[in-house]
Amino acid sequence: MATLTSPAPLLYVRTTLLDVAYETHGPLDGEPVILLHGFPYDPRGYDDIAPVLAERGYRVLVPYLRGYGPTRFINTQVMRSGQQAALAKDLLDFMDALSIPQATLAGFDWGGRAACIVAALWPQRVRGLVTGDGYNIQAISQSLKPRPPETEHRLWYQYYFHTQRGVDGLTANRRELCQLLWTLWSPSWAEGPSRYALTAPSFDNPDFVEVVIHSYRHRFMYAPGDPALEYIEQALV
């Protein structure tokens, strides 16, 4: 695979709630492909594939999700929600702001979830869907049902985030905690440390902690969602 050797152009677009920072590759008149990262990652997760797609003539857009990197909320009063509906609405707003009627959506984790929701509820906006970890729309009403122990122990960091200690820990040690997750999830990845060093600054976003904590509490019904997004959550039930 090709490797990105120089930073892609960083652009901004204003949506209804955010100034979204995004990287772009390829011709402006190419078929749009939107690549969406998850937690705890950023656009660096696509440094290998974005140039390949651009070389094939696609217009590739790689946004920083809410709470990551240079993306910022416009209004200080807006709820820093990390729920799945917020991520999907951000994606839809991003496409609207750039006048993209239809795109191929690809993502993993949080980004894959946003892509899946837009594909499910607004299929006319989606030319193709690639999701790295399955069709991962959350069944929130079923989230309190215990899973097998071999699955439960892997969710330790999510349960940690349900506590004030977890909030304090993520606030004080965000880079160390996220690096630990990378190490646990990809223990044999030789490029991990160098790629992490390029990614970690994105976690210094002032809304990172609040968005992350809300994401993991809302999915387990331990935090209410944004009332303005309830119609999306209800459509997914």
Rank of each mutant, 00 (worst) to 15 (best):
M1R: 11
A8Q: 02
L10A: 13
T15A: 03
T16P: 00
L18Q: 09
Y22L: 12
H25R: 07
G30R: 01
I34P: 01
Y41D: 15
P43M: 07
R44T: 13
P51M: 02
V52A: 15
V52G: 08
L53Q: 08
G57K: 12
G57H: 07
R59G: 09
L61R: 12
R66H: 12
G67A: 13
P70H: 11
R72S: 09
Q77E: 14
V78A: 14
V78I: 12
M79I: 13
M79S: 05
S81V: 06
Q83C: 10
Q83E: 15
A85I: 04
M95N: 03
D96H: 13
S99R: 14
P101M: 00
A103T: 00
A106P: 00
G111V: 12
G111E: 05
R113S: 10
R113H: 01
A120H: 11
W122M: 11
Q124G: 01
Q124R: 07
R125C: 02
R127F: 01
V130I: 15
D133Q: 12
G134W: 06
Q142E: 12
S143D: 00
K145M: 04
R147M: 10
R147V: 14
P148C: 04
E150L: 05
T151K: 09
Q158H: 09
Y160K: 08
T163D: 00
T163M: 01
D168T: 09
G169L: 12
T171W: 02
A172V: 02
A172L: 13
C178V: 08
L181S: 00
T183Q: 15
L184F: 02
W185D: 13
W185R: 15
W185M: 13
A190H: 09
E191W: 04
G192R: 14
R195I: 15
Y196E: 00
T199D: 05
T199N: 07
E210M: 05
E210N: 10
V212L: 08
H214C: 03
S215W: 08
R219D: 04
A223P: 02
G225A: 06
G225F: 02
D226F: 08
D226I: 06
P227C: 03
L229Y: 10
Y231W: 14
A235T: 08
L236A: 01
